[in-house]
Amino acid sequence: MSSLIIRGKKIFYKSIGRGLPIVFIHGSMGSHVSWEFQKPLADGYRLVLLDLPGHGGSDPLDGEISVKLYTDYVAEFVQGLGIEKMVVVGHSLGGAICIQLALDYTELLSGMVLVGSGAKLGVLPTILEALKTNFKESIELAIGSMAFAEKASPTLVEMTKNECLKCRQEVGFADFNSCNNFDARERLSEISVPTLIIVGTEDKLTPVKWSQYLNDKISDSFLKIIENAGHMVMIEQPEELNQALLDFLRSLPH
């Protein structure tokens, strides 16, 4: 792992491979570990897997957290690495950050991949309340009960829950609250970046219709729906997701 200081905060990241930079942004309560099964893509590309502020090895932020604030940190982090053009891949909250990047920092993007995300990421009040009152119960609800397809490997479910438990409670709440406050529906038509949208058929947290809405509103976009996958599609069906990602990357102008 390496780190970069952005606005006085240490941001941890892992960089592997060479070529066009692909920057991966994890979702709520996640870290760079969320993208473990995407590492084979380093054969042809430079993968940058970062920990958002307050996650993994990165320093927490002060004050109120928002998608916009996370986005500004990611943009400054990428520029700090000397990256002029990238493809950005975001899961859930990370997808919201990608959308904000496409709106505010278009010049940095040559492509965008939204995985299990949406233009508005409403969170069930029961999950938000549980995040404040019983963190472990909230993870059981959001991850154990809702984040995976019915036939998902129990090992993967436990692994993901354990990773989320490493996140501090206040950070977990801030993540989901940021999602709940995010709404880019009125601005999607402004996005001109080539976009791949990926969603699992059994995603209960960010349902297929949310991805279909993105596909309808973002002009240069393609929708890939993956069978037998829930919200954690990148670890439930990594080979299919990786192939879709490779096909998209190869389709981009060089």
Rank of each mutant, 00 (worst) to 15 (best):
Q169Y: 09
T133E: 15
C167D: 07
S211E: 10
S211Q: 04
N177H: 14
F182C: 08
M159Q: 05
I99W: 04
V193T: 15
E170S: 08
D220V: 00
L93M: 15
G116E: 03
C98S: 09
L205F: 02
L93E: 11
M86N: 01
T195M: 10
S192I: 00
D220C: 01
E137Y: 10
L108Y: 06
G94T: 06
S189C: 00
S211P: 12
D104K: 13
L128R: 11
C98W: 00
L188E: 12
A149D: 12
A149Y: 08
E186A: 14
F173A: 08
G122D: 14
Q212A: 14
G172C: 12
D104Y: 03
D183A: 01
A119R: 05
D203I: 06
E150N: 08
A149F: 08
I198N: 01
K217D: 06
N162R: 03
K209C: 09
K136D: 15
N162E: 15
A102W: 01
L196C: 12
F173T: 07
V171Q: 14
K166Y: 09
E84W: 06
G111C: 12
M86H: 03
F173H: 06
K151G: 03
N162D: 15
L124E: 12
I99M: 02
V193M: 04
N134V: 05
K132R: 15
